[in-house]
Design a protein around this nucleic acid. Structure first.
Lengths: 258, 258
DNA sequence: TGGGTGATTGCATTATTCGCAACGCTCGTT
DNA sequence: AACGAGCGTTGCGAATAATGCAATCACCCA
């Protein structure tokens, strides 16, 4: 593990909070400002940061370029985009696209609700593995060994009275999810939000992403959220089809839950 | 300058091209794979990269998170988004948003043409300083000293017969641009593409970004592109107004060129 | 003109990175 | 079932590259 790289990345993360002077950055790392300077010079050289006329550092265009390449590499995002936009337009609700990556589930796209209530989530952030619909969908599709491993690492701190509290319970839930082809988060993450999620499959038949709709209580109660299920499954089906998923892995009509 | 950081960033850039194995990455740097491994471990720790089941490295979610923060910090991008989308929808042409940053001009947003012809540009990439409409707009707004400095650093390699070939010519052109409130690229970058660009100002009155429309010859000739000028200026005006630009810095109707 | 803030550079010290070699793991082959 | 190739990982001395200090420079304001 490289101390130098870790420091440089921490500086980048710090800049994510906003512009910083050299002294402020040195302070963050607890190093001499000379050290911070040289780290920043390298970052500046590669255009990951730039300095404005006041010598303040900002995140730079190199980062954009890289991020936009990364996004393109996730072809599923581009394929999904029009379908997600349509779903967002049709339902007016918050729509997320998430993927499994190295033991965690991260949001890779988001379409905001047309209501004032905004969700606390952002592209690049992790989704809770045991209390979000997208994570359940993705975990449910993993091979059993990896699924167990992922579940074993979860911190089951309850966020709400409905939060799943242990690995056994989650594994059982994942079986249900796998069987029915969709997942829900019934006030498990936030007391006032319900979600439903469905898998998106590519040509390999594996779930490479998950789509979800999130609805706050104030907008619609739980029962009405379930009524959106057909639209969600249809969206997931359309995206999967565009991604070349085999016919027999496409979701059919919703099945009864439990 | 930190060798370690530079290497780590080069690895990230390499991953921008696609997934890579550890050996491939070590090869790129010309170092022992142990060295590459430890750099990557640090990057992985901070979620800038992740490894798939085959131990191949990919760009990771930490990068997305950071880039999306960086985008948010550029408030102008969010403010401009609906107006750019509208301009793109109304004209059907490629629309760019660019900003000046540390001596260069970079694209910070892009809306694709609805025609098959796609432009070679991408969010995060640099725009040529002497052969693009957006750069002319932004350079024209700089204080004279900085403008001269920026112009001094330009490589005036001609791309087309129309490319501006020297600093004097460019500085003169920038005067024109500043006076008329918009810029053009008349086949200066690519023989078959014409652009027009206009400044977006914020509360300080400075040009913090530039909007442009790019049109390939095959879609419409130069003269027709100029007919889009009122729409472009109106868009720039609307974005500037939303960004709190003072009334007297807003563009008025187009003036005659030269 | 002078003092203060903040960035930058030269240099000696040493912590940190580096490459090597050995180990371990997985997978495909015989 | 044993073998071997291919890759990723780890332990450890060698030495390179990062570090902090102090001095210098550049700029702004009183």
């Amino acid at each position: 593990m490289s101390q130098t790289v870790t420091r440089a990345l921490r500086l980048l993360t710090e800049l994510g909070e906003g512009e910083r002077s050299l002294d402020q950055l040195a302070e963050v790392l607890g190093v001499h400002k000379t050290t911070a300077l040289r780290l920043m010079q390298s970052l500046e050289d590669e255009r990951f940061v730039y300095r404005d006329a006041d010598y303040r550092y900002h995140l730079g265009a190199g980062l954009f370029a890289l991020a936009s390449l990364a996004m393109e590499q996730r072809g599923i995002r581009r394929i999904a985009a029009p379908h997600l936009a349509a779903l967002n337009a049709a339902t007016g609700q918050t729509v997320h696209l998430a993927a499994y990556e190295g033991g965690e589930v991260v949001y890779i796209d988001k379409y905001d609700s047309r209501h004032k209530v905004r969700m606390y989530s952002r592209v690049g952030l992790r989704a809770g593995l045991h209390n979000t619909a997208v994570a359940k969908v993705l975990l449910a599709d993993l091979p059993l060994s990896e699924r167990r491993r992922a579940v074993a690492g979860i911190d089951f701190t309850p966020h709400t009275p409905h939060t799943i509290t242990g690995p056994q319970q989650l594994l059982a839930e994942l079986e249900t999810v796998a069987a029915q082809g969709w997942a829900q988060d019934h006030a498990e993450h936030e007391t006032f939000i319900n979600c439903i999620g469905a898998p998106v499959r590519d040509a390999s038949g594996r779930a490479v992403a998950a789509v979800s709709i999130s609805v706050p209580d104030v907008v619609a109660p739980y029962e009405q959220v379930l009524e959106l299920l057909p639209q969600l499954l249809e969206t997931a089906r359309a995206v999967s089809a565009d991604a070349g998923a085999p016919e027999d892995r496409l979701p059919s009509s919703p099945t009864e839950r439990k």
